[in-house]
């Protein structure tokens, strides 16, 4: 009897897990929502991270926020919203991560995402003005972002995805965004 109850409970739990998996288990990482630098692959992140929040505490710019239960199984994991506060690549969060979820990488080898310029929004690309804020604020200018006839162009294999350009873009609808990279 007890066995039966336990078994049905377990089966129910599996079913519930499957049913909610599409919703609760889909990663919160999307455009302009990033993991801190050095993060492991996204499908491993929720498993490895112990939600100790030390990266959130350690971040001197308060860039790193903590997800809550609305993110399902990703509750407690750290994210960065570069539109609010981008990552300044100080790498303090990597130093304090106790589980290796944020791995020690060189600053230039961080890949939090990839900056993408929307040519239909960017006023420089639309030839309306000569703005190059994204170029100016980039920590790897001339490496990760270059000017092509005064228009900004992202160098895809050099961009670290810190989001400083997103933060800097003066347009009300940002003409540059960070797209997630799911595997390295």
């Amino acid at each position: 009897m007890l066995k039966k109850i336990l078994f049905s409970l377990a089966a129910g739990a599996v079913e519930a897990g499957r049913a909610s998996s599409s919703d609760a288990q889909s990663s919160p990482i999307k455009t302009n929502v990033l993991r801190p630098p050095g993060a492991v692959k996204e499908d491993l992140f929720a498993a490895k991270c112990i939600r100790c929040g030390r990266c959130v505490e350690a971040c001197p710019y308060n860039s790193i926020k903590m997800l809550d239960i609305r993110a399902g199984f990703f509750a407690g994991t750290p994210v960065i919203y570069p539109q609010d506060i981008p990552c300044y690549l100080c790498m303090k969060c990597v130093e304090v991560c106790p589980t290796g979820t944020l791995q020690k990488v060189k600053q230039s080898e961080v890949r939090m995402g990839l900056a993408v310029i929307d040519h239909t929004l960017c006023i420089t690309w639309k030839l309306q003005a000569l703005c190059r804020t994204c170029y100016n604020v980039c920590p790897y200018k001339e490496t990760a972002i270059k000017l092509d006839q005064l228009r900004p162009v992202v160098v895809e294999d050099k961009c670290v995805g810190c989001g400083l350009c997103v933060h800097g873009c003066p347009l009300p609808t940002k003409a540059i965004r960070i797209e997630p990279i799911y595997s390295f």
Binding site: K48, C49, C52, R54, A58, G100
Partner: peptide
């Protein structure tokens, strides 16, 4: 830094056994 999931003092840190165990079990690393 931290609290009783992981408490870091200087370069040394404590990790709560349950959290560490689950992290190892789930990620298999």
């Amino acid at each position: 830094q931290g609290w009783y999931q992981s408490l870091g003092i200087g370069k040394f840190w404590f990790v709560s056994p349950l959290e560490g165990l689950e992290s190892i079990l789930v990620s298999r690393q």
